[in-house]
Write a protein that binds this DNA or RNA. Structure first.
Ligand code: ZN
Ligand code: ZN
Length: 657
DNA sequence: CCCGCCGGTGCA
DNA sequence: TGCACCGGCGGG
């Protein structure tokens, strides 16, 4: 059976990049590494053999992004008796190999890696000058050798001359261990640093060039531009998106005996040289580049497997349920994503800025980015409190105009927290979970299946847990869930059964500034449009104010458009989490965790100001995001690559109180 | 009223 | 924390 390995971080990253429910996002870890290699190395990929001269003068640095524990299996690392190191990644030879990240994690995959990383502490920075020698303690898993390799830093991001590779120089060639002889030139002045660090969650590599901060051992974050920051989820969407075009995936083959060998034991179809020791002498395998002959250890991606996989997948329309394969994907913790039923829950890293979680707010953040205005909001120091508490704590809410007059804040654009969508949109927008009422399904936009997609029209599989629970399959019927195979890929809100019986226990409110200029329009690639003629008719409301439900807001548009609002409820009973204060707190917590910087004044008005990077960083909180995804493999016959598409079906988040 | 199943809860 | 459970929505 075909095997696949995947890291959850990248899944989340990719999904965040898409910002779209019901959309597929290709996953590729290797292209990310490749990107890093090219970016940090400032060089080009070496062309095959013909590049003889050029190859000797164009050193390549491969930087293991450590984005996950599996990607590095693509690297081949050789050290000969002269300590000359050869690094091959995805068939590309590099002269320098630098690894960053995750060494500090017990049991992390990096411990299984071929070489250990450059000494890095989580959250700390390693400063590397041009010309510095980097010692890497190698470890070859195949034979247990522990070669020590030394490298010289020859290029840093801000130094890397994209057009003048030949200007790079090295001072002491004897200290340089590389596979290609370098022509020594004048010693390079270490006028530029490269910082290599892990991000706070240890999942991502952040690099930047800083000009001569010799007296400052601390990373100057002001120099960290968006372009060279590969940060947490959501911060690197552009980069990730850009480099994910060549979607590919490491495919592995299960053992012949059908034994389920877990991750790490299987070599790849892609030229991966990683393997656990297994005695499968004489086998061969094929990758994208060449055929390898196996000696005493085996890669399990046999040629037959590739052929078989190709046949299995070839011709299958993308996204059809029948396309599901028994592909095994592993989460980072080693647990298996079983995509027999193609739907699984994955967990993302803790991060405070997952844009795809809070729909409304993320839209607004994006919107503001688009117009070049604030990307962060004023922090929530005081969310709206009930009057008695406010008075007790002597909290006063500044008047709107006063605040503007103070000059501390800019008047924001209208911040109506609404969105809309068209019925035929493929990207239904789900209501913010954090705003959902506790209890049962009131108040939220209940999504329902589209009825048109292949999944909707599939038959119950009869095998998944949901099916087995069904009475018609002899189950007890207590779970009452949809068959996993039949989970719709493009759910949409329940078609406006407008005459909802008015159940006044719940009440709906909107967060709306008093003076509406215009509602923020949602601008996404999807065909989502802002409702017309709204905004002015929306009345401003105090957060704590009790609001009557308004159901007739759609009447001027057809049912194809529906508006959803951030809601809160004004139950009188002060039942735990479900009071106004708590709801508001939750709202802001959500924003806050997204990196937003929010301040409220007056009655439901929100203002913003820019915060710098440092300040913002201190505000971030942790949030655990999990996503329900459907995994569908796709076989690229031409390139002989297996890719997995992840379709985001659902997102939920949790955070500690 | 029936029924599929959404989405939230509580418990192991 | 994942999953069994279930109230009740929404469509027919
Ligand atoms: Zn099923
Ligand atoms: Zn559907």
């Amino acid at each position: 059976m075909p095997y696949g390995l995947l890291s959850t971080e990248n899944i989340i990253t990719q999904i965040s990049a898409s910002l779209t429910l019901g959309r597929s996002a290709p996953v590729d870890t290797r292209s990310i590494e490749k990107f890093l290699a090219l970016y940090l190395g400032g060089g080009k990929e070496k062309e095959g053999e013909k590049d003889d001269d050029e190859a000797t003068t164009t050193p390549m640095i491969y930087v293991d992004s450590s984005l996950d524990g599996i990607s590095r299996e693509h690297s081949k690392f050789e050290v000969d008796e002269n300590d000359v190191c050869t690094v091959e990644v995805l068939g590309i030879k590099y002269d320098l190999f630098v690894r960053g990240g995750r060494d500090d994690e017990e049991g992390s995959e990096s411990k299984k890696g071929i070489n250990k990383p450059v000494k890095l502490e989580r959250g700390k920075l390693v400063r590397v000058h041009v010309g510095d020698t980097v010692i890497v303690d190698g470890y070859r898993q195949t034979n247990g050798e522990k070669p020590t390799c030394s490298f010289k830093v020859i290029s840093l991001p801000s130094l890397a001359p994209s057009d003048a590779d030949e200007t790079r120089s090295y001072d002491n060639m004897n200290d340089v261990s590389m596979n290609s002889p370098m022509a020594p030139q004048s010693p390079a002045e270490p006028s530029t640093f490269a910082y290599i660090t892990t991000s706070t969650d240890g999942s991502f590599l952040n690099t930047t060039g800083v000009t001569d901060p010799s007296n400052s051992p601390i990373l100057d974050t002001s120099s960290v531009s968006d372009n060279n920051f590969l940060g947490d989820t959501g911060a690197s969407t552009t980069i990730i998106t850009d480099i994910s075009e060549n979607s590919s995936f490491t495919s592995h083959e299960m053992m012949e005996d059908g034994e389920d060998k877990s991750m790490g034991e299987l070599g790849g179809l892609d030229g991966s040289d990683y393997m656990d020791e297994r005695d499968v002498s004489g086998e061969s395998f094929v990758d994208s580049f060449q055929t390898h002959q196996v000696e005493t250890t085996a890669r399990f991606g046999t040629e037959e497997a590739v052929t078989s996989l190709s046949e299995t997948l070839n011709g299958q329309p993308s996204g059809e349920p029948e396309q599901q394969l028994e592909t095994h994907i592993f989460k980072k913790d080693g647990t298996q994503i079983n995509i027999d039923d193609s739907v699984t829950l994955i967990k993302g890293p803790n991060c405070g800025k997952v844009l795809n979680v809070d729909r409304e707010l993320s839209e607004i953040l994006i919107e503001w980015d688009d117009v070049g205005t604030p990307t962060s909001w004023e922090p929530v120091k005081n969310y709206q409190l009930k009057k008695e508490k406010r008075e007790r704590n002597k909290i006063q809410y500044t008047d709107l105009d006063d605040l503007i007059a103070s000059g501390l804040f800019e008047k924001s654009q209208s911040m109506e927290l609404t969105y809309s969508f068209q019925d035929d949109s493929e990207t239904p927008v789900k209501k913010t979970e954090g705003m959902k009422r506790r209890g049962s399904g009131h108040g939220g936009t209940r999504m329902s299946r589209c009825g048109k997609c292949a999944w909707c029209n599939a038959d119950d599989c009869g095998n998944c847990k949901a099916c087995k629970d069904k009475i018609k399959f002899g189950g007890p019927g207590v779970r009452k869930q949809c068959c996993n195979k039949r989970i719709c890929n493009s759910k949409r809100p329940g078609q406006g059964s407008e005459k909802r019986s008015v159940k006044k226990k719940q009440k709906k409110g909107v967060v709306t500034p008093q003076n509406e200029e215009r509602p923020l329009e949602r601008k996404t690639p999807s065909n989502i449009s802002a409702p017309k003629g709204r905004g002015k008719q929306q009345k401003a409301r105090a957060p704590c104010e009790r609001v009557e439900e308004e159901e007739e807001q759609n009447e001027e548009n057809d049912d194809r458009q529906k508006e959803t609002f951030v809601t809160f409820y004004s139950d009188d009973d002060d039942n735990g989490d479900d009071n106004d204060d708590r709801r508001w707190k939750r709202l802001f917590e959500t924003s806050y965790r997204m990196g937003a910087d929010i301040h409220t004044v007056g009655r439901g008005q929100i203002f913003c100001r820019l915060v710098d990077e440092k300040e913002r960083a201190t505000m971030r909180n942790k949030e655990q995001v999990s996503a329900k995804v459907r995994v569908t493999p796709e076989w690229d016959k031409d390139n002989a690559k297996l890719s997995l598409n992840l379709t985001l079906l659902d997102v939920r988040r949790s955070f500690e109180e």
